[in-house]
């Protein structure tokens, strides 16, 4: 039985088992996640639907190792994420997952190119960086060009449109070739046409074999995914 479970988790790139998350507000106890189970296979695109406040973002943060669950585990590639010690959790976020947010969250002081590169810089030391900086710079430029931003490398975020910003954010999430892309309502802040463009980007990434977990309200966007699950009452429903 135990062996079977372990085997199942190895088959998935990312899995959550019995995740619980509470928020305590004074006397009130908000049980946002109450035993969430999810398993993402390599190359799979999972869409997470759910009402506002149902805990979708919270789930994504737990999967990405940005927040800790009160109970349960997150497994990545056969390893338990919250057992990682000594900077290895930071490394997990840096190397194995990539976050994309609804409000882009680019750093306003940096150019588009630097915003992409910073993801790569975080993963190296000051002494290691010069050795790989050319390669990474090339990779980041290529990524931005693929996303149609070849002319915008030196622009700061405040000079870019919402769609362009989100594409920079996607490039940033991809610069370290993460195993799983975690996208929290990537089109939530965009008009329909621009949202469609972003969706196309995700689709082409998916075709290239990228595993994606995407949170969205929008059933039409969710339809592009391999599989839809809905978060309701703290549990996931297929």
């Amino acid at each position: 039985m135990v062996a079977a479970t372990a085997k199942k988790e190895v088959e998935c790139i990312l899995a959550a088992r019995d995740l619980h998350k509470h928020y305590r507000m004074g006397e009130e106890d908000l049980h946002v996640l109450a035993g969430v189970e999810i398993a993402v296979k390599p190359g799979e695109w999972v869409a997470v639907l759910g009402a506002s406040g149902s805990g979708k973002s919270t789930l994504l943060h737990l999967l990405g190792g940005l927040d800790r669950p009160d109970q349960g585990q997150v497994w990545f590639d056969g390893q338990e994420v919250f057992r990682l010690r000594g900077g290895r959790l930071d490394r997990y976020r840096n190397q194995h997952v990539g976050f994309v947010f609804q409000f882009y969250h680019l750093l306003p002081e940096l150019t588009a190119l630097e915003n992409v590169l910073i993801g790569a810089m975080v993963g190296t030391t000051m002494w290691g960086w010069p050795l790989i900086s050319r390669e990474k710079r090339q990779q980041a430029t290529d990524l931005l060009e693929q996303l149609g931003l070849g002319e915008r490398l030196r622009h700061r975020p405040n000079k870019l449109s919402g769609g362009e910003r989100q594409r920079v954010a996607i490039a940033r999430a991809l610069v370290n070739n993460p195993d799983v892309l975690l996208a929290d309502e990537p089109t939530g802040n965009l008009d329909q046409k621009t949202g469609q463009q972003i969706l196309e980007v995700l689709q082409s990434l998916h075709r290239a074999g990228q595993s994606i977990v995407m949170v969205t309200h929008d059933t039409r966007i969710a339809a592009a995914a391999d599989r839809q699950v809905t978060l309701e009452g703290g549990r996931l429903r297929a």
Binding site: G87, D90, N94, Q95, F99, H105, V122, R172
Partner: peptide, 9 residues
């Protein structure tokens, strides 16, 4: 927060 999400310690 963004930097932490990107893996900064």
């Amino acid at each position: 927060g963004v930097l932490r999400a990107l893996g900064a310690a």
